[in-house]
Design a protein around this nucleic acid. Structure first.
Lengths: 233, 233
DNA sequence: GCTTATTCGCGTCAGGACGACGATAAAACC
DNA sequence: GGTTTTATCGTCGTCCTGACGCGAATAAGC
């Protein structure tokens, strides 16, 4: 709530940024979008992409804009949601910064383009990204984003955000296996996914991936929550 | 992430506040803490309590400080977690404000004290609070906080945050019924709650509420997640 | 063409959790 | 003592689960 007696001297202004945890699937492996910092502090370290919120844009709009800029794709398909805010007083030595983190899930995208403030940008396997120390508190942002994604796969159709508009049951299963880091029984997974009413709509066509029986092609239905959920235990 | 070429003219500063959705149980009815605004804008309207984040405190610390100030209790027992951030450009006509919302769950507390910037403060039944238009975008904050609380009761021991250190199964059930707004079968609820390993630890004593058989008194165990969950369907 | 490997999709089975509800236990109230 | 109230335990049929067998439909090798 905004106090009526706002005194700019007593409450110095904050800088507000958005940081993005962008996840995608490349060759069955979960990747996260990272940029290499080209300036102090944390010069040379890998960091999550992000930037300042502009005066006239909402937080969601700022996240969407940054996502498009950093991936080089105009309208990024997939999913974008707020993750949380991180504003410890010493997270940036230069000034007081509050960062609003966003989680993005996208299908496989082309190689990213480095922004003006980054030396380079790349898709990094999540396992590698978690091994190296990231800039600022981005280790925690990444961990929180991963946990959010893992939890949401259980009760939402969000796994489809990693796929194109038409997908097979095996596509979905590959997403779950990559995000959860665990193999799933193809037969039980097939039963559960096709058992959620309204989740998958048959297109009538099939897709052959080379070897094996062709898989039925589905479009995503309009359900928002999975009943019953796909549990991880 | 923070750009090296930060230009204060290009990126005017933001005010950062914390707003609190404080829920408690009073007489079996879910209440939320509201304050009546004593200044423009939204003078005379009810709003969620909150205030500015100070230069040297973290977001969590600011939320805890405001919670203590607005309730008048030094160390508020219960639970406090971040809900999300709300920063639409026009949410406050005076300046660009980003508000970090927090959700607090507390046992029954004394009547609140009005802060300096509020005409008065009161516990308001949630059903009443949702009927009147709250200041700023606080309708949405309240709705989001309620949904978060309802969802978290399913898979976390958070319902105990509404109770004291010693509680009965009926106490817990009353929390679930008040938050979900739905009657639950006492027998099935008892089986489910006592069936979660490590959730409830017997104290060996009982508590009599007047009529009826005395209930076993429990302390909360140290489980973080409920396996299996208490579902609402 | 025939076999083999591979993937897809369906079916079976036992175990566990569910909602609905009957039955018993231990207190207060009349 | 009898009734009411609340707590706790038990039963039953249904549904979801993981483990796993099996046929169907394709590509690759011979």
């Amino acid at each position: 709530m905004t106090s009526p007696g706002y005194d700019p001297a007593a409450y110095p202004p904050f800088a507000v940024t958005v940081d993005l945890v962008v996840l995608t699937l490349r060759g069955g492996v979960l990747h996260v979008l990272l940029v290499e910092r080209g300036a102090q502090p944390w010069l040379g370290h890998w960091a999550l992409p992000g930037g300042f919120v502009r005066p006239e844009e909402s937080l969601d709009a700022a996240a969407a804009r940054e996502l498009a800029e950093e991936t080089g794709v105009r309208d990024v398909p997939g999913h974008l949601e707020q993750l949380g805010s991180y504003g410890d007083p010493d997270r940036d030595p230069r000034m007081r910064v509050v960062s609003v983190a966003y989680l993005a899930l996208a299908p496989d995208l082309p190689e990213p383009v480095a922004g003006t403030d980054a030396a380079r940008a790349a898709w990094v396997p999540v396992a590698d990204a978690q091994r190296r120390p990231l800039a600022f508190d981005h280790d925690r942002l990444l961990a929180d984003g991963l946990e959010r994604a893992r939890a949401k796969l259980e009760y939402s159709p969000l796994a489809a955000a990693f796929c194109g508009p038409e997908l097979t049951v095996a596509d979905l299963r590959q997403v779950y296996e990559a995000v959860w880091g665990r193999a799933l029984d193809p037969r039980n997974f097939h039963r559960k996914v096709t058992g959620v009413p309204g989740l998958l709509v048959e297109t009538g066509r099939t897709r052959s991936e080379g070897r094996g029986r062709p898989a039925t092609l589905y479009r995503l239905g309009d359900v928002r929550t999975l009943h019953p959920p796909i549990t991880r235990d």
